[in-house]
């Protein structure tokens, strides 16, 4: 597998634009970008995860709406647990939950169902398997200061997934026209003064 090394800003912007390209609203795409950063700081090829989560054959992907709604419900204390379904969606929910915990200082934990309950604020590696019984769970107490902010650089990205994300992102770009070239930027083309 060929991989490429990106910055966090690149991971965030590519996944956000890919989400837009997959037909998701901008506010949802923003959260996808933040979740990707959270995951890639914990060893996960987040771009690959996002591309896989989008590949359900329906646009916009309903699973993303469901994931966000579930995490919102958890954060607003409407529910106490959120199941983690298949791996791609499960990782995405983990990333969305991790970002929400970071932003709101909420106590949210990954409960693997085997007695291993890890607060997301301390989770430094999200690359392991996610058992089918795993859930995200609200922890008692209001605040949980994040103790692990992430690796200095994101996990490597599969080049094919990166290309797929760029292709999704490209759906949001407007092809150049003569008018856009001459007026869109509002400047001339030479600066020899």
């Amino acid at each position: 597998m060929t991989t490429i090394l990106l910055s966090y800003n690149e991971v965030q912007s590519v996944t956000r634009k890919a989400a837009n390209g997959a037909g998701l609203p901008h506010g949802v795409a923003e959260d996808i970008g933040l979740a990707a950063v959270w995951l890639s700081a914990r060893g996960v090829d987040a771009i690959g995860t996002v591309v896989e989560a989008f590949a359900e054959g329906v646009e916009p992907p309903q699973s993303i709406f469901d994931a966000l709604a579930a995490v919102d419900a958890l954060c607003s204390a409407a529910v106490n647990v959120v199941p983690l379904p298949d791996r791609a969606s499960g990782l995405l929910i983990l990333g969305l939950g991790g970002t929400a915990a970071l932003d709101m200082g909420l106590g949210i934990a990954l409960d693997r169902g085997d007695g291993d309950v890890v607060p997301l604020a301390r989770l430094s590696d999200a690359t392991g398997p996610i058992p089918s019984v795993a859930v995200l769970r609200r922890l008692p107490g209001e605040d949980a200061a994040t103790e692990f902010l992430g690796a200095p650089r994101p996990a490597a990205t599969d080049a094919k997934a990166y290309a797929a994300a760029l292709a999704l992102a490209a759906r949001t770009y407007v092809p150049a026209s003569e008018l856009s070239r001459t007026q869109g930027a509002g400047a001339g083309t030479t600066d020899n003064d």
Partner: peptide
């Protein structure tokens, strides 16, 4: 949360 579950376009 419940509103955005119904209207995600307003997030």
């Amino acid at each position: 949360a419940t509103f955005l579950a119904r209207f995600p376009q307003h997030r």
